[in-house]
Simulated scan of single mutants.
Amino acid sequence: MKDVVVLSGGVGGARFTRALRDAAAGQGMRIRVIVNTADDMWMAGLRICPDLDSVTYTLAGVNDEQRGWGRIGETERVSAELHAWGIGWPWFTLGDLDLGMHIARTSLLRDGVPLSEAVARLTSRWDLGAELMPMTDDEVETHVVTGEGTMHFQEWWTRHRAKLPALGFDIRGAAEAVPAPGVVEAVLEADAVLFAPSNPVVSIGPILSVPGIREALASTSAPVVGVSPIIGGSVVRGMADACLTAVGTATDAAAVARRYGARSDGGVLDGWLVDLVDAHEVGELATRGITARAVPLWMTEAEAAQRLARDALALAGSL
């Protein structure tokens, strides 16, 4: 396969994309990554794009693997000074190197540069081995409805650690948004489309909510294969279980696949990778029009992650 598109968000998506790039090294594969931007927000006058930055830093090799977010070797002097002035959220710390990215991006946006072009300019600093594409140039932000009021997703996720039961998710601006330039074309031109093991509700879900993207997935001749973010009834990373519970979906690999649905039945999936411990779900998914395979999903080390990426490509190639 020479043209692969990945739908990605968050750390899991970033690590899967890196593994795909490394597994395909030297094969001339073009990798385009459509990244969730509904986690984005304005803070201290800056446009913060957490998922775009996570994917960028991971592919560039400058991410902090221990913390799982931000730049390696960070300092936080500017954040401390901002907090002393009462600016920003004291529970949402931005590193000094990370602030450099936010300042540069905001400067471009204030000059009238669309987000997609800003991403292209900023990521050209590194040889990422993949092309990053925001899902839209329009501002889309996820807000979480709770019993204590509605709040930005980052407040619910970072401050409250998703402990406040969510009653629903309001992806503001999505219905009016337009796919970023090249996003629909990338899906239609691809040899394969892969859903990274990202949060299906607040990472992949917002991408699918932008009018035109789901329709492109329905129309593309490329096989669409997803990787489960759930192993043995538990989340691989983060707090996706809290999100799934809020939308009435069980924390289960097959349940997430059913939520996406089979393309043959109006959904978006042709294939689905589950972990070996969930192999018993393969047959049930087949009855719903989704070809599933059980393979090791844990990306505990580079070789395991690359093997997973190859398994995803192999499943796509068989469909």
Rank of each mutant, 00 (worst) to 15 (best):
Y260E: 04
P229C: 13
A186V: 08
M151F: 12
F169E: 08
A286T: 02
A166V: 06
T249D: 02
F195G: 05
H160Y: 14
V201H: 13
V184G: 05
S209C: 01
G173P: 14
T249M: 06
G266T: 10
L276V: 13
W156M: 08
P229H: 14
V183N: 11
I171G: 05
P197D: 03
A262N: 08
I230D: 03
G238C: 10
P211K: 00
I207G: 11
G261S: 14
W157V: 06
G233K: 07
P229D: 14
L188R: 10
V184H: 03
A218H: 10
A257V: 04
I290Q: 00
M151E: 14
G226L: 01
D241G: 08
V236I: 11
G267M: 08
G289K: 01
D170T: 03
G173F: 13
M151Q: 11
T291Q: 08
S264Y: 01
S221Q: 01
G289F: 02
I204E: 00
P206L: 02
G261K: 10
A250D: 15
E284M: 10
A286P: 01
T287A: 14
R258T: 08
A254N: 05
L244N: 08
S264G: 15
A246D: 05
R293H: 15
V282E: 03
T245N: 04
V210G: 06
I290V: 09
D270G: 00
R293Y: 02
E155L: 07
G261A: 14
P206H: 00
R237G: 02
A246K: 05
I230V: 10
D265P: 00
D241E: 14
S198L: 06
D275T: 01
V183I: 10
R258Y: 02
A240T: 13
C243Q: 03
A180M: 13
E284V: 12
H160D: 03
G168F: 06
R288P: 00
T249A: 12
A190N: 12
S203K: 14
A180Y: 11
A196K: 07
T249S: 08
T150G: 00
L269Y: 11
S198D: 05
F153T: 08
D278C: 00
V178K: 15
V210W: 08
